[in-house]
């Protein structure tokens, strides 16, 4: 765009004022992350100091009352639930966007988009409640006990689907029209156009969508807490109950004191590390997107 300083004919003092105001607001927005990390570290430091980081991965079990702080079962729970739901939701989300742009008649595409937008707004606690009263009993009939990794994956899939679908929708909309004209002029059929032209052109937006949904899957707390059974164990099958890092914090924060409380902040730090790793991955994948 035309930058602020390119307009050399007039210098308006309101512009300077506005610019400084905006910088102030942006500075507030930019420092929140640092505040979060600082406070997490400050709260986690006592226990890290006393027992060290390594014991969070080598202790025999998670029994804070007896001084055992092994986070790995919860880590596996988080990773399995995330991987399963991202694997299912990504193709569905991208196909949804493709449906809106290239397959559905105009009115149906509009309706479908409204539906997805609505779903993006449905609270996790409603998904969790629905999972608890509908999905869990169904899985329980198939293979007891019911609250399980599978239930978590399915609920997470439904929850993160709107994220990837809306992102894919936006990035498909941003594909330049002349690409499509070119494909049509070459006589390419519809799916060939989508696969050969549209999806590669929309790649960086799609990747950003996947990163966003992965982050959402890692961070989801309530729905997972309600359908996964919350047993601290490394799952050996899809039907095993699991506890994730996030639900562990939500369950124990209410009564945790001292080292136990600090240990929960350590798991918060672990979650943050995963998110930062994701953000770096996103940066790496879509490098040059804003250039």
């Amino acid at each position: 765009m035309t930058s602020l300083h390119s307009n050399t004919l007039f210098r308006w003092s309101t512009d300077d004022l506005l610019c400084w105001l905006l910088r102030g607001l942006a500075a507030i927005a930019g420092t929140i992350v640092m505040l979060i990390v600082t406070f997490l570290i400050m709260e986690a430091l006592p226990v890290l100091h006393r027992i060290g980081l390594l014991r969070f991965f080598t202790d025999p079990s998670w029994h804070p009352a007896e001084g055992f702080y092994n986070l790995t079962p919860m880590l596996w729970g988080t990773l399995f639930a995330m991987a399963g739901s991202v694997l299912i939701a990504t193709p569905i989300g991208i196909l949804s966007a493709v449906f809106c742009h290239y397959y559905a008649p105009f009115f149906l595409a509009r309706l479908y988009r409204r539906l997805i937008e609505l779903l993006a707004g449905i609270p996790s606690v409603v998904y969790g409640f629905w999972g608890l009263v509908v999905l869990v009993p169904m899985i329980g009939e198939m293979h007891p006990p019911g609250p399980s990794l599978l239930a978590g994956i399915l609920i997470l899939t439904i929850m993160i689907l709107p994220t990837i679908a809306l992102m894919a929708d936006a990035s498909l909309a941003a594909v330049p029209q002349h690409y499509l004209r070119g494909a049509t002029a070459l006589g390419l059929p519809r799916w060939a156009t989508i696969k050969g032209v549209v999806l590669p052109a929309a790649k960086s937006g799609l990747f950003t969508g996947v990163i966003l949904e992965t982050g959402r899957a890692i961070g989801e707390t309530m729905a997972i807490l309600m359908v996964c059974g919350n047993v601290v164990q490394t799952p050996s099958s899809l039907f095993d109950p699991i506890r994730t890092l996030t639900s562990n914090i939500a369950l124990e924060m209410a009564y945790a004191l001292g080292d136990h409380r600090a240990a929960l902040f350590v798991s918060g730090l672990v979650l943050m590390t995963m998110i930062v790793a994701l953000a770096i991955a996103a940066e790496w994948i879509s490098r040059g997107r804003y250039d």
Binding site: V33, M34, L40, E43, E220, T246, I249, M253, A279
Partner: peptide, 26 residues
């Protein structure tokens, strides 16, 4: 400044809600 802000917001977008809970509590 713009790049730093954008990067920090990208990270913030992914911060799990429960971590916001921990942060808000403290």
């Amino acid at each position: 400044f713009g790049r730093m802000t954008r990067r920090s917001l990208d990270v913030l977008a992914g911060v799990p809600s429960i971590v916001f809970g921990l942060f808000g509590n403290v």
